[in-house]
């Protein structure tokens, strides 16, 4: 009731506080990139001087850096990330607008499956503590933690795509879940394994606590004891892992999208970096920072829900 109101107020305050943070990130990134030696057109050394000058002019690079900054921020406020330096005829807004839905779909499915399956496997292992089921689940978790997605995905592609012909190795079609299965598995596996381990450990600890003993003594069925009494405190470590999990999926998507040939925004980050495509990299930095800031906020709220002792007065 009033706690819900407190949570809403907290969320809005923090969201307002995120705007200056984002502004600082934009400013820092902008000037750091400009300060670096070299420019986006350096590799094309064969360009005649006047063509080069025209290019610079066309992209506004001939103007003083402060003017460029002013233009950039002004455009940014209207949702315009500027033209891409490398993908001719495309604005960064267009590139991101096309790629983001794919990356978002891939990432959110992977995160959701990692959370749901990870929590379920963790609970299962805790309830089978030191028995075969526990050992099997934890052995799988070690594999998930140890082997990176850029090894898992090609191996899966080789097995299910090339040898068994069950699933496509690479490529993407709108609204086709078949193309997403292998990338999602590869992407979800590492955070899934970590979550399963975290939940198992915290669940074992919670199950030893006095309030679980009380819940059992009350004659509640095991399902109720686990879901109503044990699950929320056991999820606390998962909440604090959420931001790293999103980061892990974001970084994973860089390689997974390129291996699976998915038209997401992951490839723009690496491509943009290698090509020195200033505006594209800036756009990516802004998108990812915004995502992380919102994620951090959600984690705080999740914490408050999981543990009423957490106070929300920042």
């Amino acid at each position: 009731m009033d706690r819900l109101a407190a949570m809403r107020r907290y969320f809005l305050t923090r969201l307002a506080g995120a705007v200056p943070t984002l502004f600082i990130i934009v400013t820092l990134a902008f000037f750091l990139i400009r300060a670096a030696p070299g420019g986006p057109f350096d590799q094309e050394q064969t360009l005649p001087v006047e063509v080069m000058a025209n290019l610079q002019k066309a992209y506004g690079l001939d103007q003083p850096v402060w003017t460029q900054y002013g233009h950039y921020v002004g455009a940014l406020l209207h949702g315009d990330f500027g033209p891409s330096f490398r993908y001719k005829d495309f604005s960064v807004t267009e590139l991101i607008g096309q790629g983001l839905p794919v990356t978002f779909e891939l990432g959110s499915i992977a995160l959701a499956s990692a959370l749901i399956l990870g929590v379920l496997i963790g609970i299962f292992a805790a309830l089978r503590h030191n028995r075969a089921g526990d050992y099997a689940a934890m052995s799988l978790a070690v594999v998930g933690v140890a082997i990176p997605s850029f090894v898992v995905l090609p191996f899966l592609g080789l097995l299910f795509g090339i040898y068994l012909h069950w699933l496509p190795v690479a490529g993407w079609e709108p609204a086709s879940i078949r193309h997403l299965i292998l990338p999602v598995v590869a992407l979800a596996l590492p955070p899934l394994a970590v979550i399963a381990r975290l939940v198992r450990a915290s669940m074992l600890e919670v199950l030893r606590s006095h309030y679980i003993r009380t819940a059992i003594a009350k004659g509640l069925p095991l399902r109720t004891v686990i879901l109503r009494h044990a699950l929320r405190p056991a999820l606390l470590p998962v909440a604090s892992y959420l931001a790293p999990a999103v980061a892990s999926i974001m970084t994973g998507s860089l390689v997974v999208e390129s291996i699976a040939g998915l038209p997401g925004i992951g490839r723009y980050m690496v491509q943009g970096a290698l090509n020195r495509d200033y505006t594209l990299v800036m756009g990516m930095v802004i998108i990812y920072s915004a995502l992380l800031i919102v994620m951090g906020l959600l984690v705080d709220l999740l914490y408050a829900w999981l543990d009423p002792r957490v106070r929300l007065d920042s």
């Binding site: 006095h210 003594a217 004659g219 509640l220 009494h229 543990d307 009423p308």
Partner: peptide, 23 residues
């Protein structure tokens, strides 16, 4: 559980830790 918690109940030593914190 047919009797536990209803006909046969228990009160524990430490009320600080014996209640579920988030309910």
């Amino acid at each position: 559980n047919r009797v536990r918690g209803s006909k046969l109940t228990m009160v524990f030593q430490d009320p600080m830790t014996s209640l579920t914190p988030h309910l």
